[in-house]
Amino acid sequence: MPDRKPVESSDPAELRPEARPGARLEARPELRPDLPQAPRRARFDRALVFVALVAIWIGLATVLGTYWVGSPWGVALRLGSGVWGDLWQALAFVLGPTWSDSAVGGMTRPVNLGLQGQLQGQILVHASYTLFEAVAGFLLGAIPAATLPFLLRRLPIATAVIDPFMVGGYGAPKLALAPLFILWFGIGIASKIALVAITVFFIVYFSALAGVRALDARLVQMAQVAGASERSVARHIVFPGAVPYIFTGLRIAMPYSIGGAVIAELISANRGLGYLIQLGAMNFDTTGVFVALVATTCIVFLGNWSVDTLERWLLRWRPPADTKAEVGS
């Protein structure tokens, strides 16, 4: 099949099994070294490492001072009070005077708790902007990308024609296009959504394409022999078979979507966690930078967790070993 050649030469590196070592590890359990099983000792060691890491953090904050390294309690206080400030406002917005004029509401009003300035809130507000950009861009990029290979399934020539352009798009440094998107869509959320969407698009396209291709031809033939229509072959055989591949792409794309939103915010924005990080850095407010970083990391974990959960739910039919989470991405 000569028209496939270029595809082979340019397979997206991230989507290959070697790039996802976790998958290999699961696939070849017999090659795993039989490490001495000592779970209790390992748990103790891990706890020890955790204590050591926190000690190092405290040590750095104490020795270097909070100008260089935000102290753990400083970060926790800022984060906690910031989140509380947002929650208080949200409750006041939803419940109105019943909350803000109540005894508890009055007492816990951020100002009355002695929280001022940066301690008063806005973490959740900014986080929600970033999250919205990431999710909207993710959906906007992933849905067409996952659909396109199915539409092109019966059109091998069209697939071959667009292939070099798709490979180019995949390889292009999309995050480096951030200024272009800011130029086109302004410094608001639209430019971030567009950047995230285009980043996610190419990753998911190739994983969905691989899924459609890896499909077991015997299953299709069997269904056709059994009299299944083209539509029902697509629906009952091609799609379920491709889902695991699509999820590989989604799992790789998830951190990129949040990363893309944050990068665009770092470059130019007036809201969002990236803006918060930049604001903190400009004011030499290291604790503020730490707080925004912690919030960003939390969002990444939340995103990864959501994709994993959704995948587990959609792929209930798979034998348990296959659905194990992989390292990396």
Binding site: G259, L266, A281
Partner: peptide, 22 residues
């Protein structure tokens, strides 16, 4: 390795670009 592995794998999730201002 067994002791530090979970921390290294968790740190993969930290968005590296966001660290630049720091």
């Amino acid at each position: 390795t067994a002791a530090v592995e979970p921390y290294i794998m968790a740190s993969v999730g930290v968005p590296k670009y966001a660290l630049v201002p720091l």
